[in-house]
Computed example of a mutant assay.
Amino acid sequence: MKKSILIFLTVLLSHWTMAQEFTVMTFNIYHGENPFPKSSDTTKINFPQLINLIIQKQPEVIALQEVDSMTGRSEALFGERIAMMSRLSRETGYRAYFAKAMDYDGGGYGEGLLMKKRLENNTQLLPYPAGGEPRAVAWSKIELKSEDELYFGGTHFCHEYEENRLAQLQALISYADSLDRPAFWAGDLNFDPESAVYDSIPDYWKDAGREAGNEQPTYTGEEGKRIDYIFYDSRYFELVNYQVLEVDFSDHYPVLATLRLINRKPVPEKDSP
């Protein structure tokens, strides 16, 4: 009898642990266009390759950067103005959210999230004190198979001014630290690990690539810099796996990490009436 109970508890614990492991992906999709088309390609659209990648890898959540919504640029590519996140949602079966950072070409431009199970979404507009393009974070409250609730953010920091990147990082971390559930975030941050902005990140926020010992470049320009990241709060998560996929249909590579939830934030008690 004791042996049967032990086996049951072992199986239950194993299932509980696996249920709390999940994979996150971040990818700058170059506004849906393949910057390296082959002579045999009949279209410059990279959505077929993107959709196949998502279906093959099946991440729990995905952060996408350089996303258009109803722009003239999307019309030039697709033959009509499209809401890219809605199109990707239809083709993959994921729930989608678009966070507009700025008006662009008759529509919107910003961040996109794809999630298997979401509970709520919101957009955090980021500061840009040095000027330049507005930026944002797309946030979603998600639910894992274990019914644990987490927050996931996807962003794209300023490519022009370090002052903006530092202010944007500080705003994102301040918001993430204020949430009532464990949080993780990802995106194209436009700084490399040798930058002062990177050095300002609090120690408990871990860079999945560095923790895995994998400094592989994520961007094909500028001598192959690593500027795309997945960050997780090490007080609540641990890293299981990390990889960079060398695809040829964007100027960035997709980055994937598998995380494991190891702690939960205490749920604040509601005040008695």
Rank of each mutant, 00 (worst) to 15 (best):
S69W: 05
M70A: 04
T71N: 00
G72M: 13
G72A: 06
S74Y: 03
E75Q: 14
E75I: 00
A76L: 14
A76M: 12
L77G: 08
L77F: 02
A83G: 05
R87N: 00
R87P: 02
E91D: 15
G93T: 14
Y94P: 03
R95S: 02
A96K: 07
A99W: 13
A99T: 10
K100H: 09
K100Y: 02
G106S: 05
G106Y: 00
G107Y: 06
G108M: 00
G108P: 06
G108Y: 02
Y109N: 13
G112E: 04
L113I: 13
L114V: 01
M115D: 03
R118G: 10
E120K: 14
N121D: 10
N122Q: 08
T123M: 13
Q124F: 08
L125R: 09
L125A: 10
P129G: 05
G132I: 12
G132V: 14
P134K: 15
A136P: 12
A136F: 11
W139T: 04
W139D: 09
K141W: 02
K141H: 05
I142E: 15
E143W: 01
E149L: 00
L150W: 14
Y151K: 02
G154C: 04
T155F: 09
H156W: 07
F157S: 11
C158M: 11
C158G: 10
H159R: 01
H159M: 03
E160C: 12
Y161H: 13
E163V: 15
L166Q: 06
A167L: 10
A167E: 06
L169H: 08
Q170T: 15
L172H: 08
S174A: 14
Y175T: 10
S178P: 09
S178C: 02
D180F: 05
P182N: 06
P182V: 06
A183S: 15
W185R: 04
A186F: 01
D192V: 15
P193Q: 03
S195T: 10
Y198C: 03
D199H: 11
S200N: 09
S200D: 11
I201Y: 01
P202T: 00
Y204W: 00
Y204R: 07
K206R: 14
R210A: 00
N214T: 13
